[in-house]
Design a protein around this nucleic acid. Structure first.
Lengths: 200, 200
DNA sequence: GCTTTAATGTGAGTGCGCTCATTTTTGTCT
DNA sequence: AGACAAAAATGAGCGCACTCACATTAAAGC
């Protein structure tokens, strides 16, 4: 039966759900893969049939949230924004979706979306990076031409982007309002490197 | 005897030396703390009397190199540079000192100097951050006034700084020459936020 | 020298993420 | 239903960084 086959694969969602709850309760580091297994009623090795590592499991949560954020961005944008405004919508849309995980997700993002690529290829993180940068690249070509090789530009952007996420994670102001200023500032700075006529 | 006491403490340097060699040979992750202990002729727990963790041990190497780099910077600068040029000298001086460790140091810097601060306080990394940012802060106040709160500015800078280091680590061009362009680009971007009259 | 006290070294033990040979379950074909 | 192969679950075991109760050594007081 095909139905049962797919029903089985929703074990995967169960694992994701339970993990998200445990991470939120106890934190990422403090939650062991055995904790997850026990709460899910499975053997300690089973979750590794679904996810190659604890980090990949957590990155799946991040990835799904970011994807939802990007979808919201596509719905929300009018296509007439200036450069910085466009990316501002993208990033805030992503952060809104990430919010439920904000408490514990720092170490996951740090190693999963890192500036410092590992030999241990975290393919989920690479996917996230590519999908996000693709949008940025589009935005760059849509507005004016760049003053530097795209390669350099995107590296620079990724630094700023991770900096924004890090800022947001630590931002204890109400609803992380200070982050908005930080995003705005970062993006206007960045848009200064693009040949866009209207920045600020 | 006080002498012997100090002689003992130079066990510490022995550990650092041996570690640096092993890391270079086999990589950071692949070198186990037991490897280090064996090669140093000590018990497996002894190095933890000198360093709180394997990461802290490696961060000590980084920290010493960066300090040497900053010293070289102080010697090298004339005090008449414009803003971006000044920081350019600082960063290249640091990277020159870091070069011997370039092969394996990525994961250490990633977690030790991370944008994403841990509850597990990596005090060595915090020290590095503060010492570096102090110089940057000085440079900012020396040249023109900032257009944003210093807090935001320094966060932004740290993102760019880590981005530069990450770029450098992956730069396979001869003598990492491309990194120079990247630094230049990053810093001119950043100096756009400062009220400096002459940028580029 | 001899004893005392503090500093340092020791290595079996712990819990972690993860592996993998084996067992159990599932879906298909007669 | 029963036989069979493919898929999934299992949990003992591994190597890791790190801990800690104890052994060893060194410095100081007598």
């Amino acid at each position: 039966m095909r139905i049962s086959k797919k029903a089985k694969k929703e074990n995967r969602n169960k694992i994701l759900d339970i993990s998200a709850n445990l991470f939120l309760e106890k934190g990422y580091q403090e939650t062991t893969t055995r904790n997850i297994a026990v709460k899910a009623g499975m053997a300690s090795g089973t979750m590794f049939n679904y996810f190659p590592s604890k980090e990949a499991l957590a990155m799946t949560l991040v990835s799904e949230a970011l994807t939802k954020g990007r979808e919201a961005y596509v719905r929300r944008r009018t296509g007439k924004e200036e450069f910085a405004e466009d990316l501002f919508i993208l990033i805030t849309s992503e952060l809104r979706q990430l919010k439920p995980y904000r408490k514990y997700i720092g170490p996951v993002i740090e190693s999963g979306m890192s500036l410092f690529p590992k030999p241990t290829v975290s393919s989920e993180g690479e996917k996230i990076r590519q999908e996000h940068l693709e949008i940025v690249q589009e935005a760059i070509t849509r507005h004016g031409c760049s003053s530097a090789p795209e390669f350099i530009l995107l590296n620079l952007y990724w630094s700023l982007y991770l900096g924004i996420i890090a800022f947001w994670l630590n931002d204890e102001s109400r609803n992380q309002e200070e982050t908005l200023a930080f995003i705005d500032y970062s993006l206007h700075l960045f848009s200064g490197t693009i040949g866009d006529s209207s920045n600020r």
